[in-house]
């Protein structure tokens, strides 16, 4: 199951979206996510969905790749939707014993799921078109003013990018250890929650040991390649805004305006 997380998995392709400055993508995604929570209107979601689809098509990332990011949160989605569906008071349109379904509940459940879905799809699209290194570069640059408050921005960015690099490796390792323990008769499926958690111990201990060993190796390798902190360091791909980045910012503003107009002037559905 953990293999399915697409966050932090870059999809290599040559598109305008991939070439955009990561700062634009970070800010754009933030704007998009915030915008999803500012209205309660079908037209607004139509605009949000339309824009998302347009960006996806331009980015050349296969749709199935982005949707894969939804799988791990699928149950949470269904759960919150059901909760809203059954526990929202209002006009009842269906009744079975104590269970009541209301129009308001249906509407709320629908809006909430759509919001969550687009929140995840939007951020997945960003991480699929932005290498984690670009992403941390962007954060390093965007958070640079915090340096004056003695926040170690470079170190944090470095740690994030290394963590992202090792997630797939450790996931693979977990898989390998699990299989090795299963081959020795370990049982991860039966028993109650506490028993299951206890059965996870033989996975966690070797995983932890290996992670520490890897960290040690990596620190040596970084030392060997002259790493000595953020001072005096240059960048292979320094972030410089290009024409297309300003165009993208304009598109962001256009999206907000369009969203506002659609929510305000179109008949409420």
């Amino acid at each position: 199951m953990i293999r399915n997380i697409t966050i932090g998995q870059y999809y290599a392709a040559d598109s305008v979206v991939h070439r955009l400055d990561p700062r634009v993508k970070v800010i754009g995604t933030l704007v998009y996510i915030v915008s999803l929570f500012l209205f309660n209107n079908f037209w607004g979601y139509a605009v949000a969905a339309g824009c998302f689809c347009a960006v996806t098509v331009v980015s050349k990332v296969p749709f199935s790749y982005i949707v894969r990011g939804l799988k791990p949160v699928f149950f949470m989605l269904v759960f919150t939707a059901l909760l809203n569906l059954f526990w929202t008071p209002g006009t009842v349109f269906f009744q079975l014993g104590p269970v009541e379904l209301t129009w308001e509940g249906l509407r709320k459940a629908f809006f909430l799921s759509v919001r969550l879905i687009f929140l995840i799809l939007g951020s997945s699209l960003m991480t699929l078109t932005t290498t984690p290194n670009q992403l941390t570069n962007a954060l390093e640059k965007l958070l640079a003013p915090l340096c004056h408050l003695h926040v170690p921005v470079h170190e944090i960015a470095m740690m994030m990018s290394i963590a992202l690099r090792f997630i797939p490796i450790l996931v693979e390792e977990t898989d390998r250890i699990m299989k090795a323990q299963m081959a020795r008769g370990a049982d991860f499926e039966s028993g109650n929650v506490i028993q299951r958690l206890r059965n996870m111990l033989p996975i966690l201990v070797p995983l932890f040991v290996s992670a520490v060993r890897r960290a040690n190796d990596l620190a040596l390798a970084m030392d060997a390649r002259c790493y000595h902190g953020g001072s005096g360091r240059t960048k292979m791909h320094p972030l410089r805004y290009q024409g297309r980045d300003f165009a993208a910012y304009l598109l962001c503003i256009a999206y907000c305006v369009l969203l506002y107009a659609s929510v305000t002037y179109l008949p409420v559905l």
Binding site: N133, R165, L218, A221, R225, R233, K235, M236
Partner: peptide
């Protein structure tokens, strides 16, 4: 355990960056 970056070319550039 010795590849630091998430993209091949960025890893090769790590030394010169430092």
């Amino acid at each position: 355990n010795q590849i630091i970056a998430n993209i091949v070319e960025e890893d090769v550039g790590f030394g010169p960056e430092n």
